[in-house]
Write a protein that binds this DNA or RNA. Structure first.
Lengths: 172, 172
DNA sequence: AATATTTGATATGGTTCATAACAATTATCA
DNA sequence: TGATAATTGTTATGAACCATATCAAATATT
């Protein structure tokens, strides 16, 4: 299940430094994962970290985190909504959403507008700059990030994976 | 870590309060996810949170987090290893692993023993109690947690999902 | 009108994650 | 051999994330 011993071991010049008789990657020294590799939660977490890492790399020129990108996407798709609505659908608690919005607003990517109907709530809107950054981010994500994932998994597997994850997130 | 909402909600009688004409889940008011649902990272994170949530529920009698469970599993499968080795294979930074071990050791689930070869390192061992707790945890995870996942996804899908996640975690 | 609820916000504490630094020990190598 | 470098566990520390209680203003409910 681990990395198969490549044939490069055969040609490797004898340089026994430590106990590195076998050490394929920069990992540690070949521990047995055991039942850990069959634990869905474990694999999910590891995969998620890798995917987020790649996302950050791909979208680094725009300085957007996955969470920020998801906010911009949602604002674009759902105009006229307030903070509570956006935060809720993203699973972000309202108190924690305040600082997130402050950051986006300070970069002039979105703005809070007092609603005329309900003067408690803030209607969230993308600024022109916000729309421009989102467009560029979408392109980066599609061509660099998702493209890579699809290439690694294969298109049909990628779709199946999405379907299963959605089902997991849906049914408890 | 608080008490999860009990299943008493299940018997909740129809109490239409607001504009809940249509609202499948306890969500918000039907926002459009848009391209968000096609973002693998987003779905991964949401699914991972749900799965961990369920793990905590299932193994609650033993008061074990997913991370703690993974440490016990690894200690059982790999005797004679030190802190650095265990931490590395789990992707935990050594400084952060110290407190984790303190917690497990204070509960008498594992112990640090000074190595005779290298008096810097601590050889980690499961205690008898640790082995007993691990055995019970394994049973709970298998019969409650994973069983549920397999039931939701179907056995072959579950296997395919694991395979894809492992591949993702492997190839950058 | 009196009371309750909602909205955005602040304060706060917990948990996770990452980095620098340190003492003790061991490895390297000039 | 002895000087220097590297490793191990540890502490300290700060950033980022997550959760709860509470508040004033505004609105809804009765």
């Amino acid at each position: 299940m681990t990395v198969p011993k490549s044939a490069s071991d055969a040609i490797r010049p004898a340089r026994p430094s430590r106990k590195d008789i076998v050490d394929p990657a920069g990992d540690d020294s070949m521990l047995q994962l055991g039942e850990l590799s069959g634990l869905l939660g474990y694999s999910l977490k590891r995969a998620q970290l890798k995917v987020f890492e790649d996302f950050l790399r791909c979208v680094a020129p725009l300085q957007l985190t996955p969470a920020q990108f998801s906010v911009l996407l949602l604002l674009d798709k759902n105009p006229g909504r307030n903070q509570t609505e956006i935060a809720n659908t993203l699973g972000i608690l309202r108190p924690n959403f305040v600082a997130m919005l402050d950051a986006l607003e300070s970069r002039d990517l979105c703005a809070r507008m007092r609603s005329t109907n309900d003067r408690r709530s803030h209607i969230l809107v993308l600024t022109d700059k916000g729309r421009a950054v989102l467009a560029r981010a979408k392109k980066l994500v599609a061509t660099k990030h998702e493209a890579r994932l699809i290439e690694v998994l294969g298109p049909s597997n990628h779709a199946a994976l999405l379907e299963m994850l959605a089902k997991l997130a849906r049914e408890y």
